[in-house]
Every structure is written in C-alpha cells, then in structure tokens.
Design a protein around this nucleic acid. Structure first.
Lengths: 131, 131
DNA sequence: TAACTGTATTAATATTAGTAATACAGTTAA
DNA sequence: TTAACTGTATTACTAATATTAATACAGTTA
C-alpha cells in the first residue's frame, strides 16, 4: 500500500501525509472509508504507532480525515470544510504571498492567468462534482 | 536607527531584515543609498558582524539590496527585479497555495477579491509616500 | 471482559537554526 | 604600496526545534 523511504531526508510521517493526501484527492480512498488503524499500519510498515498518529493528526487538522476515539480514522468529505481554520490559514498566507508577488513586479493579469491555469487542472481531476 | 530586542523569540537577523525591508519600502532608504557596513552596524548594535552579514545576504537574495565586495551594500531598485529567482520562488509557492485554497472551497471570485484588495492597499501606500 | 480503536505525556535523539570566531579577499585614499 | 576600510567564506559552538519512540490513558464493540 505504501512505499516509504526510512532513510530519506523527508520525515516518515510527512511521506505518509503526502501519500494519503494524494490517494484521497485521487479518490483511491473513498469518503468515509476507514483507514488502517495506527497500530495495524505501524506494524505493516514496521514503524512506531506514534508516527502514524502524527500523520493522521496532521491530516485531520488539514481537513482530509476525521478520527473517532475507539472507532478509527476515516476519509473526510473535503467540500464540506467551507470556512475551516485551515482555509483561514491558507487565506492569510495567500495575502502575504500575493502582496510579495506584486511587490516584485507580478501583475494582476499574471495572477489571474495563474488562477485560471490551476482551476483547469482542478476540473480535470474533479470530474462532475461541482458546477 | 534600529531598536532591536536581543531576547525576543524572533532572531536578531530577522528583526534586522524586517526593519530594513520596511525602511526600503517606505523610501526611508533611497535607491543606491549605502547601508552601514557590517562591522560599523555590528558595533553600533553590539552584536556580531556575521549576524549583520546574514541579514544583508538575506536582503540581497530577496532583491532588496546589492553588495559589492570592498565597497559596501546598497539599496536596490526593486522594480527592476522582473524575473528574479525570488519571483520564481514566490510564483511556485503561489501555485501550491492557490491550489490548496481552491481545494478547500475557496472560489475564483474570492481569490479575485483578495487580489483587488491587496492591489488597492498597494496603491494607497504609493500615494502616501509621494505626499 | 477482551481486543480492538484513538490520544496524551514524556523523553531520547537527530536535525536545524542562530550566533560567533576567525581568516580570506576586494577597494580606496594617503 | 600600505593602512583602513569594505564584503565573504569556513568553521564551530550552542540553542532550539523536529522526529521518533516508550508508555499509559481512554473510548468502542462484540
């Protein structure tokens, strides 16, 4: 299921986060599907359960999954996280970054083009979800 | 000239970078104006010259100043940094961040609004400076 | 209750960040 | 040329943070 590189400069939990994000975004993992428990996955990958836990918590705070004590961790319905804390954080970052980009000569049109480009990429992956 | 807090959680060199950026953006320091040498400023602030050096290098890679060995460090002409490495970096960050924002439900219109807002702030600052 | 689940606390360790000591090297004016 | 400026590179010490792990706590379910 996962191919981790334990001696990569990129931390294990981060590899896990990225991998799981990717699977969620690409619908490899369906909404409300149960992820492997922290202990089971830890044993499979022969790493410490707390490392899985860290990855899962990260995914939870970013809105990708939700966890229920005693039950397990499950894929979240991403569209539902409208005004999440995560979105607020992203917005704040965006403000700074856009201001900086403009300061260094990036024009409104260039920004617009960038947004359109990204929107197109998103649609390709999204299929018939919205609009 | 500077009021630093040596026991702040924010590193000294970062305080310097922020302060100098601010002065450059607000035209307190004019284009091509010479900054204090690393040693002079270090003595004034009673900190290590290498700390100043780190701040200056950071400002240089970000395009705010330029340094010439044996001569000194000078305020850069910011508009001229059209396709700088820094802008490329900012663009790359923007791409990721915009994609993430959209992923979490931020719409094109909201992004547009954000850009306009920031653009307006920029213009207001320009006018104020001219007096 | 037994065997699952996630979570919190704490600590050991690895890695990175911040600062400093020192030496190298270019510029300029006497 | 030399003295006194300039920035820069190397190295190392220390502080702070990140990563992982050991362990105990707590909820769920059959």
């Amino acid at each position: 299921m996962f191919d981790l590189d334990v001696r990569s400069r990129k931390p294990i939990y981060e590899q896990l986060v990225d991998k799981l994000k990717e699977m969620i975004i690409n619908d490899v993992l369906q909404v409300d599907e149960k992820l492997p428990s922290v202990r089971v996955l830890a044993q499979q990958l022969t790493i410490n359960p707390n490392t899985i836990q860290k990855a899962y918590r990260e995914l939870e705070t970013q809105g990708y999954i939700y966890s229920v004590k005693g039950k397990g961790s499950f894929v979240n319905q991403l569209v539902k996280t409208e005004n999440s804390e995560e979105l607020q954080k992203v917005k704040a970052q965006l403000e700074k970054l856009i201001a900086e980009a403009m300061f260094f000569g990036m024009t409104k049109d260039e920004l617009q083009a960038l947004i359109n480009e990204i929107e197109d990429q998103g649609k390709r992956g999204d299929r018939d979800d919205r609009q």
